[in-house]
Nucleic acid binder design. Structure first.
Length: 844
RNA sequence: GCGGCGGUGGCGGAACGGUAGACGCGGGGCCCUCAAAAGGCCCUGUCCGGAAGGGCGUGUGGGUUCGAUUCCCACCCGCCGCACCA
């Protein structure tokens, strides 16, 4: 017989053409009949994070879609109707920067990239429902992004206020944080970046902090991702305390609230610090001898790069404002300072400083020679509370941030454990109207406006008479105009499109100007999973019936680098849209899987390192099946994996072997035969191979549920190794069954070769076959190798019958030759029997 | 600093508290071949031994257990996230 060779370059396009021709992976939104056995939901929504189309897909894309496709195929063959769509997160800076450099319009270069991604995904054989494909830069998509924005605007969840943004004085443009390098310079021109106050759009995600935190308990996400989100939200319990300033005008005192997690230390507050960004700073300093110094300090602090300013090791700096505030608990006048260690974004932008019990305040007090007053006495630190005056209370070790007993405070609280004092002092503040219990979050509102061209236009108009006016829904989308020059000139490039900017007010008909900022691309990707459910709907962003079929996403898959931003924003959108009556669920992604990075020689792939492995070149050499199976075989998918060309060859050999065995076996059988029945009472090699096949079914099924694809593929390798070894010792139908089984369970990982092998053997389409079931009887053995231990060490192995009673197993073990040698007259004090596994004799 | 994850052969990695190292790579030997490629078979943690067999081995030190890579405590190292968050 002619030598047949595994040729992925022939096999793969052939099956891809069939799947494309028959639109095999498309699904409808028709309601599924309700299922009577109640076993499983009939619909399953498997989604990988949509790609940002730039150049060619990289190896990370190959990994995420290989993982997702395996799950999608598995669910299909378990009987589910699976939604597995694809789209492109197509707005963004790189396309725009490319345009600035080359003059090629972002739309043109983006479309090129999208085409290349489409080609690759088809070439990889990913089972995508192409009928639902879209790119977020298409007006038919961003029309609904704009609609959502307006919904949020009407609900008060989108608002405008002044905010500090990064500004490059040379390029005359606002910069995204990512465009500022580590030295605080513009990544394009190298000029020192400044901070500028500009009107910006925000989304009120902070309103959802509590729910975003609480609902993490309702979803099946990796614990570390939940932890990152919890940390990002950063919930702290404490109190808001009011410090009154009467210095400016005693008849009109100003109240400055501060947030503190330690109201128990209030009596130790010896000064008061405000952030340089605090709007009252200059007003407070005005007319004091320090006015100029304060002015200089604020200017300097505001222009300092975040990385530098945020460095906790930096010595504390600041300037006295020359004013005082009143400590509400004891009426003391304490001096006010401005210092850059206080952040405007957190809490109220002002703090009470308790140097004795806070490291930062302590450092500042040291630098400025301010009083330090201990108000917490450590436990077990001898002596009575009264005998502890002076700076450190005679105990030393300041600042002290631990728990203890209150001292130097007030007779009502002195002697109280500080944990208890927190409640007592807050209650007192509350009664006096000087404060109240409060919860504070680290999470800040989401700044969504970008002074950029290549993004979704914000659908707002400014009318001279009516002010800010939302674009009426029937006028959506506000389309991005074609422009000539993408170079920023101190405002969004859109501002130069005068014809587009100038329009009429829908309310009064008078002249109006369009908002020229565009939206952060994270807005686009915060709802795309909803659009897939009803991607061709021109009347609405989605129909409720379509959503009911699919949402929430059953399994979401993507890189851990999106653990915070994208996943938080998508959750926020879902909750906000649910509150507005557009959705009837609270969480978009029921289960999440985060896959690890693919590295080369232990390092992240990058052009500058020259270690980039391109999927296209791999596939050209060994085919898509090998590339996909290898990337899943190399290790657990949630871990980082190092690409090895030798490892790829190993997987290629395995697929090659599988295919050749199937081809030879099919040739011998003459014609494909759908009948896969096996000898009725198999013995010897037949039994061994059939058992192996059923073991493999069981192993792969479990591994697919656990996402341990590496061991699933290893199990199929074992089955193929055994099939090869036993090929001449078993009945032809046994071998056929073993190989068809291997092809069947390998299909989710290497679809083309599996489909081809299955077809050669049976003439059937493997993806139309139900997932195989392992037969219980084939998983059991009537004989097994009993491990014989003496004092926990393996000394022998003997054959035991599966139905042997414990006492029989003990006998077998005691009789094993090498066990006897180790027992040798010693006393057996205990015998542990684990049926099916081992016997352990404890001797003395 | 806080939080999370992880440390197993030459390498990637397997092991419901029960035979440590499945599977693959790499390495060695052999078969096929005029030769090569491709393929096939065998060996491959380490030390002692001819072999049988035995000692030692999952970052370090303790503990629980008949038995620990697995559970508990302390520590060391590495990676990731957050970081002057009041």
């Amino acid at each position: 017989m002619a030598e047949r060779r595994y040729d992925p370059q022939e096999i793969e396009p052939r099956w891809q053409a069939l799947w494309a021709r028959e639109r095999t992976w498309e699904v409808s939104n028709e309601p599924t009949e309700s299922r009577t056995d109640g076993l499983r939901a009939l619909n399953s929504y498997i989604l990988e994070m949509l790609p940002y189309p730039s150049g060619e897909p990289h190896i990370g894309h190959l990994k995420v879609y290989s993982v997702g496709d395996a799950i999608a195929h598995f669910h299909r063959r378990l009987g589910a109707r699976v939604l597995h769509p694809m789209g492109y997160d197509a707005f963004g800076l790189p396309a725009e920067n490319h345009a600035i450099k080359t003059g090629v319009q972002p739309r043109v270069s983006t479309d090129e990239s999208i085409e290349s991604f489409q080609r690759q995904f088809r070439r990889w054989g990913i089972s995508i429902d192409w009928s639902r494909e879209f790119a977020t830069c298409e007006p038919s998509y961003y029309r609904w992004t704009q609609w959502i924005f307006l919904e949020l605007f009407r609900a008060g969840l989108a608002y405008r206020r002044e905010a500090a943004v990064k500004w490059c004085p040379k390029d005359q443009t606002v910069l995204a944080n990512e465009q500022v390098d580590a030295d605080g310079c513009c990544e394009r021109c190298g000029a020192l970046v400044e901070v500028k106050q500009l009107e910006q759009w925000f989304l009120r995600i902070t309103d959802y902090a509590e729910r975003l935190l609480g609902d993490l308990d309702t979803i099946e996400w990796p614990e570390h991702v939940k932890t990152m989100q919890r940390n990002w939200i950063g919930r702290s319990e404490g109190a808001e305390v009011i410090f009154r300033c009467e210095d400016l005008d005693p008849t009109h005192p100003v109240d400055y609230p501060v947030f503190t997690t330690r109201p128990d230390t209030l009596f130790g507050a010896t000064f008061f610090v405000m952030a340089p960004e605090h709007p009252d700073i200059m007003r407070l300093a005005e007319g004091t001898p320090n006015e100029q110094a304060v002015h200089d300090y604020v200017n300097h602090a505001l222009n300092e790069p975040n990385e530098e300013r945020g460095n906790a090791d930096k010595p504390k700096t600041g300037v006295a404002l020359g004013r005082t505030v009143t400590n509400p608990v004891n009426g003391e006048q304490i001096p006010m300072y401005v210092a850059d260690y206080v952040l405007m974004e957190y809490g109220t932008g002002a703090i009470m400083a308790v140097p004795a019990h806070d490291e930062r305040d302590y450092e500042f007090a040291r630098a400025f020679d301010l009083p330090v007053r201990r108000v917490i006495f450590p436990p077990n630190a001898h002596d009575s509370v009264e005998a502890a005056p002076g700076e450190d209370g005679g105990v030393g070790g300041l600042p002290y941030v631990g728990d203890g007993t209150l001292v130097n405070s007030h007779p009502d609280f002195d002697g109280m454990p500080n944990r208890e004092a927190i409640g007592a002092i807050v209650a007192w503040l509350d009664r006096e109207g000087k404060g109240h219990a409060s919860v504070n979050y680290r999470l800040r509102d989401w700044l969504v406006s970008r002074q950029r061209y290549w993004g979704t236009p914000i659908p707002i108009l400014y009318c001279e008479r009516c002010g800010m006016v939302p674009v009426p829904e029937e006028q959506l989308p506000v389309e991005l105009p074609e422009i000539e020059d993408y170079t920023p000139k101190g405002r969004s490039p859109l501002a130069a499109a005068e014809l587009w900017v100038n329009t009429t007010c829908p309310q009064c008909g008078g002249p109006a100007r369009r908002e020229t900022d565009t939206m952060d691309t994270f807005v686009d990707s915060s709802w795309y999973f909803l659009r897939y459910c009803d991607a061709r709907n021109e009347q609405a962003a989605w129909g409720p019936a379509a959503l009911r079929q699919w949402m929430p996403v059953d399994q979401y898959i993507g890189g851990v680098e999106h653990a915070i931003l994208h996943l938080m924003y998508a959750r926020f959108f879902t909750k906000a849209l649910a509150d507005l009556g557009h959705l009837d669920f609270q969480e978009p992604f029921q289960a999440l899987f985060t896959q690890g990075m693919v590295t080369k020689d232990g390092a992240k792939m990058s052009k500058s390192r020259g270690n980039v492995v391109s999927p296209a070149s791999i596939i050209e050499r060994v085919g898509a099946d090998t590339a996909r199976a290898y990337i899943l075989f190399v290790g657990p998918p949630e871990q980082d994996a190092d690409w090895s060309d030798e490892g790829v060859e190993g997987v290629h050999r395995f697929l090659s072997r599988l295919w050749r065995l199937a081809a030879d076996t099919a040739d011998q059988a003459g014609a494909p035969n759908a009948d896969l029945s096996v000898p009725s009472a198999p013995q010897g090699a037949d039994l061994e191979l059939l058992r192996k096949a059923h073991w493999a079914i069981d192993k792969v099924s479990g591994d697919l549920r656990r996402f341990t694809f590496n061991t699933a593929i290893a199990a199929v390798m074992e089955l193929i190794n055994d099939s090869s070894r036993l090929r001449d010792a078993v009945a032809p139908e046994t071998l056929r069954f073993a190989l068809a089984t291997a092809a069947s369970v390998l299909f989710p990982f290497a679809p083309h070769v599996s489909a081809d092998a299955y077809d050669m053997l049976t003439g059937e389409r493997v993806w139309e076959q139900p997932w195989p079931q392992a037969e219980e009887s084939m998983l059991e053995r009537d004989q097994y190798e009993l491990v014989c231990q003496v004092n926990g060490k393996v000394r022998d192995r003997v054959q035991a019958s599966s139905d042997a009673a414990p006492h029989e197993l003990k006998e077998l073990c005691r009789a094993a030759p090498n066990v006897m040698a180790h027992v040798d007259g010693k006393e057996i004090v205990k015998e542990i029997v684990v049926p099916g596994k081992l016997v352990n004799l404890v001797v003395r």
